[in-house]
C-alpha cells in the first residue's frame, strides 16, 4: 500500500487571519486612560460639631458662576463686611491670573490675602451651570496653583517641580496649599 504524504497546509493566509483578529481588537477595545482633576469633598458638617471659625473676607476669593455660565469674581477688602468687596465680571481666561495675584500676595496689598496658607478660593455654582464651565474653572484654578509652585521651584532650586526630590516637592506644595472649596450649591439665578 502506498503511503500517502500529508499535503502541506498553506500558511499564507495565516497573516490575514491574524490581521483580522488585530483589527477586531483595535476596534472593540478602548485605550481608556483615566485622567481627571482630583478633588476631595468636605465631610458633611454634623449639627453637634462646632462650626469652623469664620474666614476673613480678605482671605477669600470667590468665584460665582450663574446658569448662563457668566462668571463673577469677588475678592479683597480688609473689612469684615461683604459690602465693600471688589466684584467683577470676568472671562474664564482671566481667572488664572487673578487667582495667582490673589494667592501670592503675601500681605503686600492689605486688601488681599495674608499668605498662601490663609488664602481660600471658593467656587460657587448655580444648579444651571454647565459641567463644562465648571471643569474649565476648576482647571484654571488648579493651573494657578501649579504655575505658582513651578515658579517657586524655579526660584528656590532652579529646577522644575517634576525634577525635585519628594521632600523638596512637598515643601513647595505646603507653601502653596491648594485650598479650593466647592461651596454647597445655591440658586444664583440669572
Amino acid at each position: 500500500m502506498a503511503r500517502r504524504e500529508a499535503p502541506e497546509i498553506n500558511a499564507g493566509s495565516m497573516a490575514d487571519i491574524a490581521f483580522l483578529l488585530l483589527i477586531f481588537f483595535l476596534v472593540t477595545t478602548t485605550m481608556d486612560v483615566d485622567k481627571g482633576i482630583s478633588r476631595k469633598l468636605p465631610p458633611i458638617i454634623e449639627d453637634f460639631v462646632e462650626p469652623p471659625p469664620p474666614i476673613k473676607q480678605k482671605n477669600l476669593f470667590t468665584v460665582l458662576v450663574n446658569s448662563n455660565d457668566d462668571i463673577l469674581v469677588s475678592y479683597g477688602r480688609s473689612g469684615a463686611g461683604a459690602e465693600n468687596r471688589e466684584e467683577r465680571y470676568v472671562q474664564p481666561t482671566e481667572i488664572r491670573d487673578l487667582a495667582k495675584v490673589f494667592i501670592s500676595n503675601f500681605g503686600k496689598d492689605p486688601s488681599s490675602s495674608d499668605s498662601p496658607q490663609k488664602a481660600i478660593i471658593s467656587l460657587q455654582n448655580d444648579r444651571g451651570t454647565s459641567y463644562e464651565m465648571f471643569i474649565a474653572i476648576q482647571n484654571e484654578l488648579t493651573a494657578a496653583f501649579t504655575e505658582l509652585r513651578e515658579e517657586e521651584a524655579m526660584k528656590k532650586h532652579g529646577k522644575k517641580l517634576g525634577e525635585l526630590s519628594a521632600k523638596e516637592a512637598d515643601e513647595i506644595k505646603d507653601m502653596y496649599p491648594q485650598k479650593i472649596s466647592e461651596a454647597e450649591p445655591v440658586n444664583l439665578g440669572g
Binding site: L41, P42, I44
Partner: peptide, 18 residues
C-alpha cells in the same frame, strides 16, 4: 458626601479648554 466617599475625580480628556 453623605456616603463618606470623599475622594473624587472629575474625569476629563486632555486638551485645550475654551
Amino acid at each position: 458626601r453623605k456616603a463618606q466617599a470623599l475622594k473624587i475625580n472629575y474625569s476629563a480628556t486632555p486638551g485645550e479648554i475654551f
